[in-house]
Design a protein around this nucleic acid. Structure first.
Lengths: 128, 128
DNA sequence: AGCAATAACAGTAATCGTTACTGATTTTGA
DNA sequence: TCAAAATCAGTAACGATTACTGTTATTGCT
């Protein structure tokens, strides 16, 4: 099922690579719609899933009920502001050592972990 | 809006305290239905949310699209088997130190983190 | 360039987990 | 025992996502 080029997919990827935000499918839809006024929401969802599956973008499940997407695939951690809901990248040393800590008293095999941090972002923290 | 007793809520809580699994709302529904054959799924959802809000149970968002619930409210980490999907508790030293590691180059305020580990559970590991 | 095969599309209907609404039932404190 | 109010069962509605259908775009080949 050889992958074929599509400008819609290209536009979606471009947008994700360019932004520092971590938009939801709907936000991607709203944005790409400026260039492709009659792109379908289904197309956005299909391509986001496809791009995530082949590893060109990252799907973030932050537990807020809707998936977010990240154009950056290099491993890094995320921060969610409990005040304004913004998602930002964290520059952090690798935390892979926690896999071993967690595995000490565990009989199975730990391959990895999912972690995100929460609190108040710089902007919201300033205001209080 | 003083909280009133209800046997349905009691049954839901009992079940969650008794099990080591981390059931979804639907599983809770299926189980409690044995005792209350015409309990409503809405009642299950409402009480799970209520119990989680007052801190008598914990809501787990594991990124699999459906919430899981844990009758144990003591802080601990969870492990998800990528093979069979089971969720288990991990006995682990506190990992709160990662909050500081993550906060080093961050301007906001980090209150906490959400972490779960994944890999192969003991059962599935044995079989391979 | 022209063409057939097929991936990708737009549009829409369907699905799934969850929440909100409604009129009937329980619980509770007086 | 009784009335106020929380909770219920049942069902409709919701938002995010996926699946389906007939049309369009891309591709490799001649």
């Amino acid at each position: 099922m050889a992958l074929k080029y599509s400008r819609q997919r290209e536009a979606i990827k471009e947008f994700l690579m360019a932004t520092k935000e971590h938009p939801t499918a709907d936000t991607v839809y709203m944005t790409v719609r400026k260039e492709f006024p009659n792109i379908s929401l289904g197309t956005v969802y299909r391509n986001l899933s496809l791009l995530a599956d082949i590893g060109e973008i990252t799907r973030l499940r932050l537990g807020d009920g809707t998936d977010h997407f990240d154009g950056c695939t290099a491993p890094h951690y995320h921060f969610i502001c409990m005040n304004c809901g913004s998602v930002s990248d964290l520059e952090t040393d690798s935390l892979d050592s926690i896999n071993e800590i967690a595995g000490k008293k565990f009989d199975g095999l730990i391959d990895g972990h999912v972690t995100y941090f929460y609190g108040k972002c710089a902007n919201c923290h300033k205001k209080s």
